[in-house]
Design a protein around this nucleic acid. Structure first.
Lengths: 256, 256
DNA sequence: ATGCAGGGTTGACGCAGCGTCAAGGTCAAG
DNA sequence: CTTGACCTTGACGCTGCGTCAACCCTGCAT
């Protein structure tokens, strides 16, 4: 007659596991001796070996009982089920590994790699880290808003960075974002001038009328809100832009 | 300002998950409106996208916070850690699949395949299902007692099945095990005769003195106990054997 | 005004498979 | 008699939410 720890040691499981199997009803409760200790016979060893064999093979405990009673056909059917569950789980984990490998490369947490290189270009033309970070968050939001459509926008955005006006704009913005300039800093006026000028050009080139869905409206609203949450002084800039005939931020439109 | 379900829908997670992230401290609790509803700004969208990106990549939530704050070096180090954890988990599951594939083939739950074919031979020489089942459980116990040493014993055991005396013994035992013969059935005497005779032969051939360790003693005790638990009438057989000068069951020794 | 559907709120249990205290009672040896 | 090793039951912890429960808020149709 074995005690619980002897049984556990013999079959290579923990005492806690044995009690757990009792609790699950997988292993019948044995008789108790005079002091209330569990006393196990040889059949318990055999049962426990079977249980831990199935459990070690990845069979959920909830299905072990059925499998122990199953005939050959039902058994191999169950084996098939378990195996395909294991395969699914493995596949999920493999996917995770791929995703995490994507993350490993640099700047692109939650972003396609095209955006990462766009952000690198921004740095090259003199944008400050804080501005790049703000852009990055904007593109994260954009990527969530239009999944799969961000990568194709990047070539155009990179191209635009060759525009000296835009370079000037980003540098000026970087200065302001890194300073504690207040609302009457004259550089804000300069920024507004540049933006108004660029808006005029875009409008003239017919680059400004994009049909938008309701979902798009929300997305643009969020982008605008993100900008202001990140940098409240943008509100002042928006006022200056309105004085120059332009409303909006992420997407601008001419005032009546 | 978004409600919680709008935020959740926008980022592709469930409302419950968002609240869970609040609870974990991953996502800061936003301000409440007049009626106590959570109201989210655009930054929350960005934060949530980052969180679900890491989570979807298999990063444990407990480590997400650190990774969001980490610099490039710490980040890629963390990625390495996560990845190796994922690899380990995948390996465990692959092992499970191998184990379960082993189980798939027939008779060998918790037994090496050599034993399965030995059991098949037993059936062929006329052993009943119940006897085979009892043998099977015995070998499960043996396999747990001497892991890795069972396979090498099988050729000898199969060989022994060519002994007509042993065949007779198994057939007789099968009859008795399937009947409700009581202790004074004459076939018990015949069984005892055969077993005593075979013991004499084994003894004469010097096949009976195996050095045993303490662990072995326990194993043999368990095997004996298993036999009696499975078939109490074996006790009567043991008495008859003792009358013929032999003690024990799984392992027999001559009485003084 | 009212009622109802469809939000929102906190709180708590459930799952899988045990690990790990807690707070004792028991046993064997010195 | 003490001590240390084992036994008992009971209950929380872990992971990442899903799923009630019980109740409050809001906006729209009647």
């Amino acid at each position: 007659m074995l005690t619980i720890s002897q049984l556990a040691a013999y079959t290579g499981v923990t005492v806690r596991a044995v009690r757990h199997y009792h609790h699950m009803g997988l292993l019948p409760e044995p008789q108790r001796d005079a002091s209330g200790y569990r006393r196990y016979g040889a059949k318990a060893v055999v049962s426990l070996v079977k249980i831990r064999t199935l459990a070690a093979a990845g069979v959920p405990l909830s299905q072990v009982a059925q499998m122990l009673e199953a005939d050959a056909a039902a058994f191999s059917e169950a084996v098939q089920r378990i195996d395909s569950q294991l395969r699914e789980e493995i596949e999920r984990l493999e996917d995770s590994r791929k995703q995490i490998a994507q993350l490993a490369a640099g700047d692109n947490l939650a972003l396609p790699p095209e955006v990462a290189s766009y952000l690198d270009r921004l740095r090259q033309i003199g944008a400050s880290e804080r501005l790049v970070e703000a852009e990055r968050e904007g593109w994260i939001l954009a990527a969530a808003s239009w999944p799969g459509h961000i990568a194709e926008m990047m070539p155009g955005k990179v191209e635009q960075l060759n525009n000296p006006q835009l370079v000037r704009l980003y540098r000026l913005a970087s200065q302001l974002i890194d300073s504690n300039a207040n609302d009457d800093d004259p550089r804000l006026e300069e920024l507004a001038d540049i933006m108004a000028s660029m808006a005029e050009q875009a409008d003239a080139n017919g680059e400004m009328n994009i049909a938008t869905t309701a979902h798009d409206e929300l997305a643009f609203d969020l982008l605008d809100a993100l900008a202001i949450e990140s940098e409240p002084r943008i509100q002042r800039l928006q006022n200056l832009l309105r004085e120059r005939g332009w409303a909006g931020w992420t997407r601008q439109r001419r005032l009546a």
